[in-house]
Design a protein around this nucleic acid. Structure first.
Length: 567
RNA sequence: CGGGGCGUGGCGCAGCCUGGAAGCGCACUUGACUGGGGGUCAAGAGGUCGCUGGUUCAAAUCCAGUCGCCCCGACCA
């Protein structure tokens, strides 16, 4: 490839709406170009990287026993009604009508379609297990696309689905995928931390996310520096301390003039916040919910959502609080008629101070379940930095991160809903036990650049670089130089290497800067200076210093150097 | 959906407050010089000032509406 012919220009300054470092580099280098919010074009350089990344994923999926196939992005809406996910996905689903007014969805994920395929192609336990996958565009009508490739409305995802006879089989498939994911991220040069995750809209049981720790991340993960415990905050557990062993004392109502907050309450009574029970009000799927949690803790809304098995939960508005006769600042779970959910921190803690359902009054020594009874008791507390690890007691750390991949044990939920069954050896019909496994290719590409760059540009890992060698030719007015450059170019290509030849009539500075920005693993320079030594200057992108190689052996030396760059 | 910011040649920006001939840098074209880290000179091409309506003799500039993009939050694999 001659640089002069390459479709896609380099920019000295990044467009104003490219904010993140990786994004500026990809845009400036001419790899990607934005079309609209959350919609990007891949220009030739970017597309080559994208394809190489896909190939690594494909390779590892195949190695783990996956079979690639291709599903339609356009899906009849009935499929989504059948799985019950149309409502669950809500506005995030892109829908459209055909000329006969029949509804379709642009697939945001493909469980439904894969189940349809399963139904036609699997009948017996002899057909199992199966791991099938595709690499395809997904469409999601995100409320807010962001960060360039980080949250797109149209993006490329590798989605693999496993079908097994039983849970032991699923465990094996899940493990195989987990291991494959570890290899994918390693080969892509992106360090990831596997964390326990919430399974979200996907439903199902176990799930783990592979998180790339970065400030530009949109998830928060909890890490234990001592024992290695790691989880998404939506899932993270931590030690809340064992409740004091005290005898339950009798209820006592006290004056607390002007006390509206836990902080004020604890101060007023001279007790720690952990001796109080905090009341918080939410609306879950339209129903009011009274939430009780220990005064020193906060509610994690995702945990709350899951504990209530609700689709949507939001804090109650001030108007609704009044409407439901709640006394903000002094609300009490005692005598509540609405659903009461308690964090396990308050369920067995004795003698907590709670509201009295009257302004400026609180109750001492409330005890669950003596004085009030929670409809649901669950862990709904938000883990914070410094909270003790439930495994080892060390202080937990909170980090920002980006989800690179996600593995789920779906179980039999979809199979049962949509009739994905098989005939077992004992002659009974059983639902397939499913797993689903996704990797966002675009996001991974973003992470690769974020993890592999310096102030001058991208430093592509050898396996992902759009080309192998950046051949810079200077002093082209000298026929000898030009000839040597062309000859080396041909030799390198002849060795099967992918080469960019910069034979533009530009100053050396421009050429070197472009080479650094594009970030190919090895730069080779032919110039009047190098010709004096009958040599070529070679400089790995990641190295500070260049070395000279004799012209006759240049191609072989290049090949050897590239091999040493191989990861 | 709530809050904030921004829309002026391909990119980065000024001009807007205080209405009166659309500018600057980069990039691009042609020529000359230069030639190892974004070089110099000369001559050029390129813009419905996001869109619609209004005010005015006159609108990039003032007013109203609208669309788009970015960021924070809500939400979300």
């Amino acid at each position: 490839m001659r640089l002069a012919n390459l479709f896609g220009r380099r920019l000295r300054e990044a467009p104003a709406d490219a904010e993140l470092t990786y994004q500026q580099l990809l845009v400036r280098g001419g790899f990607i170009q934005q079309l609209s919010a959350g919609i990007y074009m891949y220009l030739p350089l970017g597309w080559r990287v994208h394809q190489k990344l896909e190939q690594i994923v494909r390779d590892e999926m195949n190695r783990a026993g996956g079979q690639e196939l291709r599903m339609p992005a356009l899906q009849p809406l009935e499929l989504w009604e059948a799985s019950g996910r149309r409502e669950k996905y809500g506005a995030g689903l892109f829908t459209l009508l055909d000329r006969r007014e029949r509804g379709y969805a642009l697939g945001p994920t493909h469980e439904e379609v894969f189940v349809e395929a399963y139904k036609h192609n699997v009948q017996s336990y002899r057909d199992l297990p199966q791991l099938v996958y595709q690499i395809q565009n997904k469409f999601r009508d995100e409320p807010r696309p962001r960060g360039g490739l980080l949250r797109l409305r149209e993006f490329t995802m590798k989605d693999l689905y496993s079908f097994d006879e039983n849970w032991e089989g699923l465990d094996r498939s899940y493990r195989a995928m987990y291991d494959a994911y570890v290899r994918v991220f390693d080969r892509a040069g992106v360090p990831v931390v596997p964390v326990q995750a919430d399974s979200g809209t996907m439903g199902g049981k176990d799930s783990q996310e592979f998180i790339f720790v970065t400030e530009m991340g949109e998830d928060t993960i909890v890490l234990c520096p001592k024992c290695g415990y790691s989880a998404n905050t939506e899932k993270a557990i931590f030690a809340k301390g064992t409740p004091a062993s005290e005898d339950a004392l009798s209820l006592e109502e006290v004056d607390t003039p002007g006390v509206k907050t836990i902080e004020a309450l604890a101060k007023h009574l001279g007790i720690p916040e952990s001796k109080t029970a905090k009341a918080v009000f939410y609306v879950a799927d339209g129903q009011p919910v009274f939430v009780v949690i220990r005064g020193d803790l906060d509610v994690n809304e995702v945990k709350l959502l899951n504990a209530l098995a609700a689709l949507e939960v939001r804090p109650m508005s001030d108007e609704e609080v009044v409407e439901h006769g709640l006394v903000a600042g002094s609300a009490s779970p005692i005598g509540q008629t609405m659903t009461v959910i308690a964090d396990d921190s308050v369920a067995d803690a004795p003698n907590l101070v709670a509201g009295a359902n009257k302004a400026d009054r609180h109750l001492l020594n409330t005890n669950h379940p003596r004085d009030w009874k929670a409809d649901v008791v669950a862990d709904i507390a938000l883990a914070r930095a410094g909270d003790p690890c439930s495994n080892c007691g060390a202080g937990l750390e909170l980090k920002r991160g980006l989800e690179m991949g996600h593995v789920f044990k779906l179980g039999t939920v979809y199979a049962e809903k949509m009739g994905a069954t098989f005939l077992a050896a004992d002659g009974t019909e059983k639902p397939a036990v499913m797993g689903s496994y996704g990797i966002g290719i675009d996001r991974l590409l973003a992470a690769v650049v974020e993890a592999n760059h310096d102030e001058r540009g991208i430093i592509w890992p050898r396996t992902l670089a759009p080309y192998d060698v950046h051949l810079v030719a200077l002093n082209l007015e000298q026929a000898e130089v030009k000839k040597a450059a062309e000859r080396l170019y041909e030799q390198l290509v002849g060795l099967g290497l992918e080469v960019v030849l910069d034979d533009r009539d530009e100053s050396p500075g421009i050429k070197f800067n472009d080479a650094d920005l594009i970030g190919l693993p090895l730069r080779a320079t032919v110039s009047s200076r190098s010709m004096k030594e009958q040599s070529v200057e070679l400089k790995p992108r990641a190295a500070d210093e260049a070395s000279l190689a004799p012209l006759e052996q240049a191609a072989e030396t290049v090949q050897a150097l590239l091999r040493s760059e191989e990861r």
